[in-house]
Amino acid sequence: MEFAEAMNDIRSTRMPADGGGPDIDRKALWVVRELGLPAIVKSCVSCRSTRHHPTGKFRVNANGKLLDVWMLICCELCGRTSKIPVHERIHVQSLESERRLMFENNSPAMVRHLAMDGALAGKAAYRQDWSGTWELKTDMPFYDLEGEDPPPLEVVVRFELPAPIRVEKLLTAGFGLSRSAMRGMVDSGRIRLPLAIDAKAREDFTLFVVTTPGRHYA
């Protein structure tokens, strides 16, 4: 969904005053937009680099009725190609035909999916580096959060990619304030969060700026 379309969708709904939450008229949309895929952090056998990127290709080998599937990655420094095991010795009938074709056709969607797959990273013993993979886009008009009595505000945060981002970093980027100011407003109850400010978010969530600290919502 495009940003403008998503914002119109956000504005078309309004939290009811009797719904257990703050009565909010102002809404804002923050979108964590995708700039690229995370780097694959593992030692290169040819040089000192530890950063790799997907080549956009897979290798599929068949041995009778068994298949091996690897995602090919390239060293950022020396260009050496190496392999990340995706499936090992899997029976051909156990692999959905659509998924097998995506490997055989070097599907960009499958490359993207696997490059962002934390389970695959854990299984293959490498780390993902998400730096430089995202930017925060907002539709925020002027909003004096540090004013004496700012109007109530609902902020919907949406993720185009599952980059793990510290909530505090999102708040400082979205509101343009210092870490100490943001923490003070969270501690005072002016900003209501569904998760801890030190937590790393990677999925959509909603936060509230309330006029009167101390009023709780479900």
Rank of each mutant, 00 (worst) to 15 (best):
G214C: 01
W134D: 10
A196P: 00
W130K: 08
M71E: 08
R179K: 10
S49Y: 12
I84K: 01
A121N: 00
P164W: 02
P162Q: 06
A115W: 11
K137H: 13
C44W: 11
L161R: 15
L145Y: 04
G176I: 02
W70Y: 14
L136T: 07
A201H: 04
V41I: 15
P38D: 13
R48G: 15
A121R: 02
T212N: 04
P151V: 05
P141I: 13
V111P: 07
N106W: 00
L114F: 04
G118R: 12
E148D: 10
S43I: 13
L77I: 08
C78E: 08
R26A: 15
P16H: 11
E88N: 07
A181S: 14
R59E: 10
A124C: 07
D25G: 09
V86I: 15
Y126R: 05
V186Y: 02
P162K: 04
A62T: 15
M116K: 15
M71L: 14
E96A: 12
F208H: 03
A28C: 09
A124Y: 05
E5M: 11
M7Q: 15
K200S: 09
C75A: 03
R99G: 00
R127W: 09
A201N: 09
D68R: 09
M116F: 03
V60R: 02
E96S: 12
G20C: 05
V32R: 08
T211Y: 00
S82E: 15
G147Q: 05
L120Q: 02
T55R: 12
S43M: 13
G176A: 07
R183Y: 00
L95D: 10
E76L: 12
Y217H: 08
L170N: 03
R80N: 00
E5N: 09
I10H: 15
H87W: 04
L171R: 07
P213G: 00
S82G: 06
L77C: 14
P22D: 09
A17T: 06
V210I: 09
T206Q: 06
L207I: 01
S43T: 14
S43C: 09
L195F: 01
Y143W: 11
D25T: 14
S188C: 01
A28R: 13
L37C: 10
P152Y: 06
